[in-house]
Design a binder for these strands. Structure first.
Lengths: 316, 316
DNA sequence: GGACGATCATTACGTTTGCTTATGAAACAG
DNA sequence: CTGTTTCATAAGCAAACGTAATGATCGTCC
């Protein structure tokens, strides 16, 4: 079996982005880290770390890292099983050199809109009951599953319905994106509705360059597919990579854009936003992907996320 | 992580039914096996092997054995993954469209906290009057100036006071970060205040791995610099790369963390958050960097941002 | 009951592993 | 080109770990 002191050295180098920082975290010298990494690379016959600034993992290194995280989760389970009497852990005075009861850090990828809406409420009870720490990566909903596939995260919220190799995939529900604008904005830029000419002139806002929802919306609009390309190429676009600011920009009448119904409901009720294309919502289906590995922590997180999402998201 | 040489010794003893046989299988002496088993039992604080004839596992030993098998399976998978030459995966390339002449897209880098607070209000009037589109990049406040230096953005909000080559740099003001927690959280984890022991146990939340504010805070705390390193290395940390969710996590009593005063003011007034270290705010000074190139749009943006920031941010 | 055999624990000592300190090499910035 | 940063390598050394020998414990059989 692997010597996990070596594995952890590689993991630390990659997480910290360098041998020096890794050494500090591991309470070792840079030299020792270098030797450990080299030893493991020799043993496996593969380069695991790209020596650059910052240091990063090779494909093999990534796989090893994912493996290391899995084993870490398993060990957390084991520790819990071997320490059944760990009920009360209130901070009382004891030996400071004994590192406290270990926390487990769970790397999870989540799309910005979920993070801005239902996700925090879904994980809050989990964080209250489990000795776990979240390490969130925010990425586009179409790409979070890549982070999972490459072993960067143990779980992800994604639009991908197909399970990643070696992973579970559970449907969470549907979020409807509506094409919204402030009433003033609509009157100024779309006096005759969503005409092709108006679409080419009115400033729109999208999340970032990977955001596909706006384009999906244009595709389902009455104008034919022929005109779609022409429109899509000439859209004046704001890029605002923050869900909350995104909504603000639209609410303030600076642009129009595709907004998740949960985030828009209040604005719609108040009349601060209006639907530019009623009946043309873009439904985005979200899925929970996580390692197939059965671990009480992962299972608990999955349980919390899935059950909460199915309560608050639209179900088919 | 566990030392799997020790684990394998226990496994061998149980599988083989004795230390002697285990030693033969492991190509060791009986003494070595005995020492290894004892070492692991000491480490875990549990008896793993029932010394009888034949030797058998305790409940804890059985769990350890099951764990060992799981890790073995994972390692088999890993080995299979590292054997074959890595396939080629092509990252999907996106082709950003350049909008028409009348609209100018301004790439701007901004740190998340600014985006979550004063920045939108600062640029809103600018967007109303100018035919400009924003292309925001969110990055850590210590690194936004790098995006500027490398030509990725035309302007940036950064903590860097020194002007980038060929760029202007204007001070915007100061944001004070306070060490905050929910009252319940403070009572549970910091009954005696910010002691070293409590700091090592209580879960904290930081933005991401480049976030230095928390560490800066620890450095200015009463405990000497000597104890700082020890604390900093053993902090249980949540990573929540979203300003709004960051605050939520603290407000919900899931962790404590450094929060900009502007974002915390309402919570503090409501009593939902309390200051764990009054008088120990970490002041972060922000600067507006932009290309020296004189452009009416850039000048206008700079004008709006700087004047608004100087109104809402603390000035020296 | 006492001697014996089997089995694991302990002790003492020698080898080896693996860390630290010091220095070299390579990439990078200014 | 020079100083800086970062990783690799070399040599010395201490601690870890294994072996061999011995001690302790328990069950068995005469």
């Amino acid at each position: 079996m692997l010597d996990y002191r070596l594995v952890e050295a590689v993991a630390a180098v990659i997480r910290e982005g360098g041998f020096e920082r890794a050494a500090r975290v591991l309470h070792l010298t840079q030299s020792a880290v270098s030797q450990r990494v080299k030893a493991l690379e020799d043993q496996l016959g593969t380069v695991l770390v790209v020596r650059a600034t910052p240091a990063r993992a090779t494909d093999e290194g990534r796989r090893l890292l994912a493996h290391c995280d899995k084993v870490g989760l398993l060990e957390t389970d084991l520790a819990a099983a071997l320490r059944p009497e760990s009920g009360s852990d209130s901070p009382d005075a004891d030996a400071p050199d004994i590192p406290h009861i270990p926390w487990t850090t769970l790397p999870v990828a989540v799309n910005a809109d979920s993070l801005a809406t239902w996700f925090p409420d879904a994980v809050a009870p989990f964080l209250r009951t489990e000795r776990a720490l979240l390490d969130l990566s925010v990425d586009d909903q179409e790409r979070t599953h890549l982070l999972l596939r490459d072993g960067h995260v143990a779980a992800a919220v994604s639009t991908r319905a197909a399970a990643v190799q070696g992973c579970r995939c559970l449907p969470l529900g549907r979020v409807d994106y509506l094409c919204l604008a402030a009433p003033d904005f609509a009157a100024q830029w779309f006096p005759a509705g969503l005409t092709e000419a108006a679409l080419c002139r009115a400033p729109a806002v999208i999340f970032n360059r990977a955001d596909e929802v706006h384009h999906q919306f244009l595709r389902v609009l009455p104008p034919t597919a022929a005109s779609f390309d022409r429109i899509a190429r000439s859209l004046p676009l704001h890029y605002i990579p923050s869900s909350e600011r995104f909504v603000d920009v639209v609410a303030q009448g600076l642009a129009y854009g595709m907004i998740p119904l949960p985030q828009a409901r209040q604005h719609l009720a108040d009349g601060r936003l209006i639907d530019l294309a009623p009946g043309h919502a873009v439904p985005i289906r979200l899925y929970w992907h996580c390692w197939g590995l059965r671990t009480s922590l992962l299972d608990a997180l999955t349980q919390h996320v899935v059950s909460h999402a199915r309560q608050v998201l639209a179900q088919e």
